[in-house]
Design a protein around this nucleic acid. Structure first.
Lengths: 175, 175
DNA sequence: ACCATCGGTTCGTTCACTGAACCTTGGACG
DNA sequence: CGTCCAAGGTTCAGTGAACGAACCGATGGT
């Protein structure tokens, strides 16, 4: 969107939030970051997004403090984008959106989100029904569901076939 | 966004949800609908959205079953757009987005959302901390906060200066 | 007859997204 | 040394969506 002019006149925190994360692709980039995607190329192949747009989104997300760009090796110099606390705070929004989409648009289960400690599937607000506590994002286990393509084309989707915790960096073997 | 081509390849309920409500202005239209806005002109002046875009959004939201267009008087023929159950189900998403925006982008409180039965401000997941229950959207009272412009230009913002329940139709006197 | 309102549509301009090509840095290989 | 490859971008022409202003049709008021 890149609004400023328009949404800025709105006295509303929803509008202000959408100024930052409401543009096309932005929330999907944040989703991938929470799933553990960190490298430019992994975002690229998993999202199927034009390179120019990905560069722009990573730039503004970094500027807004939702991602942090950091050097993870010197030779050759390589940077990764790691989600910050501010980005992690978007988890309830993404969770609510995913729940709405699953309920109203999907006919099959693609993924389960569970409490890593006890394996119980999360409730609507990200809480563990068994433990009765809100599960920290780092303790959420993402596991594949029956509706998921068992042999996806891109390495990121393939890596997501194994259960893993959110935030934990994704291992993409380029096989 | 109007994607199909792009997001459709994504096996993800977030992506599917964003196909429907991820376009510019769409979530703000839904927000206004939950606030009780029903008439074309009220959406128009409150959002400051181009007419063509508003028409397009109302059309797709109606087609997606999030709003329902219905005749409320015959002469002259006038239609209103009323939010459906599917639209009401977006409340947790909007609530999460508002919370994030308030927490990370705002420096003042614009509105409070309270349990109409007891006046207690809602918790992060739309629950009433006093009653211990998730508050139905129709029982949420929206009240102005200290950061709100006390004399806004458009009639919708003016009507929202009085506390009212969500979903309850908005009374806009064209003063 | 004239004007105003509501709920739109039409249209020219501007702006963002798209996809393909290209570029740079730094190994790896021969 | 020269060539090739991968990662992580930038550049650029074409397209599609958003913007804002103008226009329109139905109805009611004066």
């Amino acid at each position: 969107m890149a609004l400023g002019k328009d949404y800025a006149t709105q006295e509303c925190s929803i509008a202000r939030a959408l100024e930052v994360v409401g543009e096309r692709w932005t929330l999907l980039v944040v989703r991938d970051a929470l799933y553990g995607v960190r490298r430019y190329n992994d975002f690229l192949v998993h999202l199927g997004i034009p390179r120019a747009v990905l560069s722009a989104r990573l730039k503004t997300l970094t500027e807004e403090g939702i991602l942090e760009k950091r050097r993870y090796q010197e030779s050759p110099p390589r940077d990764e984008y790691v989600v910050t606390d501010r980005g992690i705070a978007l988890w309830p929004t993404l969770r609510a959106l995913a729940l709405w989409g699953r309920e109203h648009l999907m006919d099959r289960r693609l993924r389960y989100f569970r409490h890593a400690e006890c394996g119980t599937e999360l409730g609507p607000y990200g809480e563990c029904p068994a433990c009765g506590t809100v599960v920290p994002v780092a303790d959420v286990l993402i596991t594949p569901g029956p509706g998921l393509d068992p042999d996806p084309a891109d390495p990121v989707s393939r890596a997501l076939l194994k259960p893993k915790r959110l935030l934990e960096p994704l291992e993409t073997d380029p096989a």
